[in-house]
Design a protein around this nucleic acid. Structure first.
Length: 339
DNA sequence: TTCTCCAGTCAGTGCGAGCA
DNA sequence: TGCTCGCACTGACTGGAGAA
């Protein structure tokens, strides 16, 4: 078992302070003799030393740990976000604890409480509903950065994507492609999961605004809403559509990658795959889309921007400098087989 | 017997003080 | 000046003492 500072000091006949200064690399700064420094180093190399983070955070009133609560890791977007944010935190010498709430407000509330009890310095949160930001801010002393979902208000630091604009651009791009290949009256089917979330509702607003501007009639647009953005709901929604005998659309747009994957699974099981001429589209991006033969257009979020802004906001909140700000990342369309 | 209060413990940190 | 030490403090928890 590694020694404590007290044990090292005891056995070397030095004070706790002297040992601590050497271990913190401040021997020169506090004029500890080279001989004493060498003794401490030799001793810890032989017997080991592990800092007690509980005691340290108790005294410093900070834990050098941050927390991130996302809906689920099986969603590629959130998994990617978590990974990059963890790397960014580690680069700054901070530890990031990651938890999933599965969009359950009760679970999210419990996780917020647990992270507060573990004395995290701040929380990155994808809120499960409109009440969560206020609740989390109260528990985490306002050290809160909201990600992906903006329920309004100017009290919190927020980093989101311009979902409305990207929805608009996506619909226009898809329509232009259909017209280009000679399909002048394409019909659209929108699969939307959890449209109560601002990110999803804004995507739908953007998509529908573009379809309005393009003059699509009611018969050219359908919308299927499911409670969540997950694989099974996408699979079930597409299976029901096929089983009901309704015609498949020329253009299928899904509000997230998991929903898209589920829809593709149902098409594969029932029809052997998506019809070759069906134009596919989804929000968020995944490299596996490269392997589809259909025309596919995804919407890639600017991860680098989101991570940097979120981290910078958190650093400001912790240091007590500046006011929380809202940052809006742009999105980029990624067309495949659409030349 | 039950309850409340208070001192001590844990392992660190920051800062002022003391000694040669 | 160079080097080292000691104290106060952090929050949750424990155990002993004394009161009801």
């Amino acid at each position: 078992m590694a020694k404590t500072i007290e044990a090292i000091a005891d056995e070397l006949g030095l004070s706790i302070t002297t040992v601590r200064l050497v271990l913190l690399g401040k021997a020169r700064q506090y004029r500890i003799s080279a001989k004493t420094e060498a003794r401490v180093r030799e001793y810890t190399e032989l017997h080991g030393y592990e800092i007690n983070h509980v005691a340290r955070s108790l005294r410093l009133q900070r834990s050098d740990a941050l927390a991130l609560i996302i809906p689920r890791l099986s969603n590629h977007f959130f998994a990617q976000l978590a990974e990059l944010l963890e790397i960014r935190c580690r680069k700054a010498g901070l530890q990031l604890w990651i938890s999933c709430c599965y969009d359950n407000p009760d679970t999210q509330q419990e996780l917020i409480k647990q992270f507060r009890e573990r004395n995290v310095d701040g929380l990155f949160l994808v809120p499960a509903n409109a009440n969560m930001p206020a609740l989390a801010a109260a528990q985490l002393k306002q050290r809160l950065v909201l990600l992906d979902r903006d329920f309004g208000g100017n009290d919190y630091a927020v980093v989101v994507t311009d979902n409305r604009q990207s929805g608009y651009q996506l619909a226009q791009r898809l329509h232009a492609f259909c017209v280009q290949r000679g399909d002048l009256q394409p019909d659209f089917l929108l699969f939307a999961g959890n449209s109560g979330m601002p990110s999803i509702s804004q995507r739908l607003v953007g998509l529908n605004a573009a379809l309005d501007d393009l003059g699509l009639s009611a018969s050219q647009r359908r919308e299927v809403q499911v409670p969540h953005n997950d694989f099974h709901e996408g699979e079930q929604a597409m299976a029901e559509l096929i089983d009901s005998g309704q015609p498949l659309p020329k253009v299928l747009v899904c509000s997230s990658i998991p929903l898209f994957e589920g829809a593709m699974q149902a098409l594969k099981q029932r029809l052997g795959g998506a019809p070759e001429n069906m134009v596919l589209a989804t929000f968020d991006d995944h490299s596996m889309l490269d392997f589809l033969r259909n025309p596919v257009c995804s919407v890639r979020q600017d991860y680098a921007f989101m991570i940097e802004q979120a981290f910078s906001e958190m650093a400001q909140l912790i240091s007590g400098e500046g006011q929380p700000a809202r940052h809006i990342a742009s999105m980029r369309l990624v067309p495949r087989n659409m030349d």
